[in-house]
């Protein structure tokens, strides 16, 4: 196979990709390096250290990795990703795509996609109205006025919220993937006496393995870095729903510790890379 299918030659090919590479350098590589650089200073939003930041070496990283709040926050983020992305969105999305048919399917799909495309600010106000302890819709329906969902079960609340919010993507992706499973294979399996679970395990999953992994990769990373729960609980009460994206916002922008926030961001970046590499490895094994 020719290595130069378009026949452009090295120089012209480079000229074509240059704009994209420059954009990536300016908006992705440079900010990333800048964050790493900030992470080794005591840079602050206000005060003396804002005018004249000092180099502090790895102090920020050491204090982040030994800080209980950061570790708690990481653990909460893991719960959030497992609960709302891997279990919630992926399973619910798959179930919706698999089970529903015909008119019901189109109706439910419409609702699910609506939850996905509404702006976060609007959606979070709706959910606050739903979960408010004094005059929330849910408490009125259940007849338990005063039950503080967002205070007593902050993680459960944001996990359910994010599942509701993000299921559409998984549903559509699985919907498309299921269309690719050859009906003849399913038919043969059924004739051979395979029950529902066996069909799922031996026919459907092998066909859509790539889709599942891609889906999990994307929603894990999106959820890992999702900031929307801040609009529901503001990380509270007392940090009980302070996932990493919220943690960074709080220390860097509200607390003004930009240097420390940058160090935490760098650590999060590394965690993201590890997650991405893990999924990509799995994907490659298949091919």
């Amino acid at each position: 196979m020719s290595t130069d299918a378009a026949g452009l030659g090295r120089v012209r090919a480079s000229a074509f990709v240059a704009p994209a590479l420059i954009l990536i350098a300016v908006f992705l590589v440079f900010p990333a390096l800048w964050v790493v650089l900030l992470g080794v200073t005591n840079y602050r939003l206000t005060g003396l250290a804002a005018a004249d930041p000092e180099f502090v070496g790895l102090d920020n990283f050491v204090s982040a990795l030994t800080d209980g709040r950061f570790l708690d926050s990481t653990w909460l983020t893991v719960q959030f990703v497992l609960g709302s992305a891997v279990i919630g969105q992926a399973i619910l999305g798959f179930t919706l795509a698999k089970v529903l048919h015909g008119r019901v399917k189109r109706f439910v799909e419409g609702l699910v996609i609506l939850a996905w495309i509404l702006p976060s600010a609007v959606v979070s106000f709706l959910w606050i109205a739903l979960l408010d302890r004094d005059s929330g819709t849910l408490n009125t329906l259940l007849g338990i006025p005063g039950f503080p969902w967002l205070l007593d079960h902050p993680m459960l609340s944001i996990i359910v919220f994010n599942t509701w919010r993000g299921t559409a993507f998984s549903m559509m992706l699985y919907g498309a993937a299921l269309g690719n499973v050859p009906p003849s294979h399913l038919e043969s399996a059924r004739l051979a006496g395979a029950n529902g679970w066996q069909q799922l395990r031996d026919v459907i999953f092998p066909h859509i393995r790539g889709h599942i992994l891609t889906n999990l990769l994307l929603i894990s990373l999106w959820t890992f870095n999702d900031f929307t729960p801040f609009l529901l609980t503001a990380g509270g009460p007392d940090g009980k729903s302070e996932i990493l994206a919220v943690h960074v916002y709080k220390v860097a922008l509200q607390g003004g510790e930009l240097g420390y926030g940058a160090a935490v961001s760098t650590v999060i970046l590394l965690i993201n890379l590890v997650v991405a590499v893990f999924y990509l490895r799995l994907l490659r094994e298949q091919r």
Partner: peptide, 15 residues
């Protein structure tokens, strides 16, 4: 990458 997207978008809004 995702993180920076989020925290930067927060900064971007403020900026």
């Amino acid at each position: 990458m995702g993180l920076r997207k989020r925290s930067l978008s927060a900064v971007a809004v403020l900026a």
